[in-house]
Computed example of a mutant assay.
Amino acid sequence: MDASQVLVVITTLPDEDSAAALTRALLEARVAACVNRLPACESQYWWQGAVETARELPLLIKTTRARYDALEAVIRQHHPYDVPEIVALPVAAGLPAYLDWVREQTAGPDGGA
């Protein structure tokens, strides 16, 4: 496992206030270099045996594999859902300068761990 690999983590929030609060918490904790708050979308999913429909705001969060566990902890702490969507996708390629910037912005005092 390459701890410096850049990840895009996806989560969804039920409203603007919770999306803004989580975005701020992720950035202040330095577990994310960038968070894109996308426009609301309609989500349909199974929950407790029934199909539900909800308006949600997706977040695209850029981090590294080394910071993933800390990022997940911040999401779980600040997310209003019992079982929040947290999906991490590895970045297979990207502009090297951008990927380096993500790594720099999420590096902790001990080098990112």
Rank of each mutant, 00 (worst) to 15 (best):
N36P: 05
Q44H: 13
R65V: 08
P90Q: 09
V8K: 02
M1S: 13
A97S: 14
H79T: 00
A32F: 10
A3M: 10
Q5P: 04
Q105T: 07
M1T: 06
G112L: 06
L95I: 00
L59S: 01
L59E: 00
L99Y: 01
E85G: 04
L7K: 06
G111Q: 07
I61P: 06
H79E: 07
I75P: 05
A40K: 08
E72A: 15
Q48H: 03
D17P: 00
G49P: 04
R67C: 08
V8P: 06
A93F: 04
V8L: 13
V9A: 06
G112D: 11
Y98G: 07
R67H: 03
P80K: 04
L7N: 07
A97N: 09
G49Y: 02
S43R: 12
P109R: 13
S43N: 10
A54H: 02
P84D: 06
S18M: 05
T106R: 00
D82G: 14
T12C: 12
V87P: 13
Q5G: 08
Q105I: 00
L7A: 02
E104Y: 09
L22A: 11
P96A: 14
D15N: 15
D2L: 09
A25Q: 03
R30A: 13
T23A: 14
V102P: 07
N36Y: 09
I75Q: 04
P14N: 05
L60Q: 10
G108I: 00
D69S: 12
V8N: 06
W46F: 09
L89E: 07
T11W: 06
V74D: 06
Q77V: 09
E72N: 14
R24E: 15
R76F: 02
Y68P: 01
Q105A: 14
G111A: 07
A20N: 12
W101Y: 12
W101G: 07
A70P: 03
D17N: 11
A50W: 00
W46E: 10
R30M: 06
V87M: 15
A88T: 14
C34F: 07
V31Q: 05
Y68T: 03
A20M: 09
A25K: 10
T11H: 08
Y45S: 11
E16H: 14
W47Q: 01
L57I: 15
A73I: 03
A70W: 09
Q105R: 14
Q44W: 12
M1H: 11
Q48R: 13
W101S: 11
W46K: 07
A92N: 10
W47F: 03
P39H: 05
L59V: 01
L27W: 00
V87F: 12
Q48L: 08
